[in-house]
Structures are given as structure tokens and as C-alpha cells.
């Protein structure tokens, strides 16, 4: 039923799209119809696949590195009061800076290859992962910590056996947010300077008035983003199941 309604919505959107194209008679370099886009997608499938692979690699590597860094930082922040006092304000400040503004500098430093795009993806997802996991680690139910204290537990064992498992649902929501943000970071990086990737292909197609190819690339990016979101959602479902409030 869930999928049925999704297909219905997609079908409706396509109809609406075709309707607008037919009614307004807009030239195809302004708004190509869905049929033209589908044709263009099929003719250029090898090209699109090649660029999709690049963007997917940037996003996935960025997601892994950003999540790992976020997890490590959150554990460090949750373990040290001093770190929370000193580092957290810095983190919040850097977050106030639009990450997009850093894209040209990253390209300058890391070049036109994968590095600068991965760095963008890492930067954009680092904060949501760190802050949601750290939040979870700081909200361990008081009673569990009392119990651990009466059991003469050490700091690290309490962290490993109680605080981290109790915070996994928060980590899961952080990673889900990250999966939404990571493609944005990678594509912005590609816009600023790249020779490969879906973002680059979209700019290129746009510049040559191949709007149908641009739409094909855009839709491919959309499908990739949705698939990534679903995959991450499934992968983190186990983490969400262990909330101390549930049971």
C-alpha cells in the first residue's frame, strides 16, 4: 500500500509535468517534457552511470568518514567536561558558518578530484552526527548511572556497556540526517570545481543548453538520494530499537 501510493504520486507528478509542458508550449531548452528526459537518460545512460558512480563514491566515503569522526568526537565530548566547555562553543560557531562558503577553499587546497568533495560531505555531516550522538550520551537515564556507580564501575566500562548503547537511537537519527546532507555536500563541491560527478554533469549540460540531460542527471541524483536514505534507514533500524525508554 505504501509503495502503491508512492507510484501513484510519481505518476501524478509526471502527468502534471507533461501537462505544463503541453499547455505552456515552453521551448525544450527551458522545460523539456518527461518523455524527452527519459529518452535523453536512455541515450546517455553510460555517461550518467559513470558520473553517478563518482558522486556515489564521494557521498559514501564522506558518510563513513564523517560518521566515524562524529562518533569519536561525541564520545570525547561526553567524557570530558573541559572538552564540552571549550570545544562545543567552537563547534557551534563553525556550524554558523555556511559550509558552502568553504567549497572554493577546499577545492584550492584539495584539488579538483574526489578529495575536496569528500571533505565537503564530511564537513556537512560531521555536526549533525556529533551533536545528536553527544546529546544521547549526555541523556543517559540517571538511575542507570546511579546503579553503575554503586557497582563500582569504571568510566570507560560505564560508557561502553551503558551510555553508548543507551545513546544508539540518537546516533541513528544523526546518521539518517547525515545521509540526507551528504549528497548536498558532494554536489556543491562538484559545482565549485570538478571534472566528474553528477553535479559537474548538470552544470555542463546546463551550459550547453542540454536541459533534458540536466534533468536526467538531476532525477538520477534524486533517485540515488532516496535509495541512500532508505538503505541508511534500514541499516540504522537495529540501533533505534534499543532505546531505554522503550522496552
Amino acid at each position: 500500500m505504501k509503495y502503491g501510493s508512492a507510484f501513484l504520486a510519481i505518476g501524478f507528478a509526471l502527468l502534471l509535468w507533461q501537462g505544463i509542458v503541453t499547455l505552456t508550449g515552453l521551448p525544450k531548452f527551458i522545460l523539456p517534457g518527461p518523455r524527452l528526459v527519459a529518452e535523453s537518460w536512455w541515450t546517455n545512460r553510460a555517461l550518467i552511470a559513470e558520473h553517478t558512480l563518482i558522486t556515489a563514491m564521494e557521498v559514501l566515503i564522506g558518510l563513513v568518514i564523517g560518521t566515524a569522526l562524529g562518533i569519536a568526537s561525541a564520545i570525547y565530548l561526553a567524557s570530558s567536561r573541559v572538552a564540552r566547555l571549550v570545544i562545543q562553543p567552537i563547534l557551534v560557531f563553525t556550524q554558523a558558518l555556511p559550509v558552502f562558503a568553504l567549497a572554493p577553499i577546499l577545492t584550492l587546497w584539495l584539488g579538483f578530484g574526489l578529495g575536496s568533495k569528500i571533505a565537503m560531505a564530511v564537513l556537512i555531516i560531521y555536526f549533525p552526527v556529533t551533536s545528536s550522538f553527544c546529546d544521547g550520551l549526555m541523556r543517559t537515564p540517571r538511575g542507570l548511572l546511579d546503579l553503575a556507580q554503586t557497582m563500582q564501575a569504571g568510566h570507560w566500562r560505564t560508557l561502553r556497556l551503558i551510555r553508548i548503547p543507551a545513546a544508539l537511537p540518537s546516533l541513528a537519527s544523526g546518521i539518517r540526517l547525515a545521509a540526507v546532507y551528504a549528497p548536498i555536500g558532494a554536489v556543491i563541491g562538484e559545482w565549485v570545481g570538478a571534472s566528474r560527478g553528477l553535479g559537474y554533469l548538470m552544470l555542463l549540460a546546463n551550459g550547453r543548453a542540454k536541459t533534458d540531460l540536466m534533468f536526467a542527471a538531476l532525477l538520477t541524483l534524486g533517485v540515488f538520494a532516496v535509495l541512500l536514505h532508505l538503505a541508511v534507514h534500514l541499516a540504522t533500524r537495529r540501533l533505534s530499537g534499543s532505546s531505554p525508554d522503550r522496552a
Binding site: 537515564p141 538511575g143 542507570l144 546511579d146 546503579l147 553503575a148 554503586t150 557497582m151 563500582q152 564501575a153 569504571g154 566500562r157 560505564t158 556497556l161 551503558i162 548503547p165 543507551a166 544508539l168 530499537g241 534499543s242 532505546s243 531505554p244 522503550r246 522496552a247
Partner: peptide, 28 residues
């Protein structure tokens, strides 16, 4: 001392056995 509260304070992600031996696990 051993402490027991109104809330059972069981770890929902751990089995009954792991909950019972929590003290030993926390002390390594």
C-alpha cells in the same frame, strides 16, 4: 552496598543474564 530502586533499571538491550551479571561486567 547493592542498590535496588523502584524502577527496575534493567538495560532493555541486554538479556536477562547480561542484566544480572551487569556488576561483574562493569568491573571487568
Amino acid at each position: 552496598v547493592a542498590y535496588m530502586a523502584q524502577d527496575d533499571l534493567l538495560l532493555p538491550w541486554a538479556s536477562v543474564t547480561d542484566n544480572i551479571r551487569l556488576g561483574a561486567r562493569l568491573r571487568g
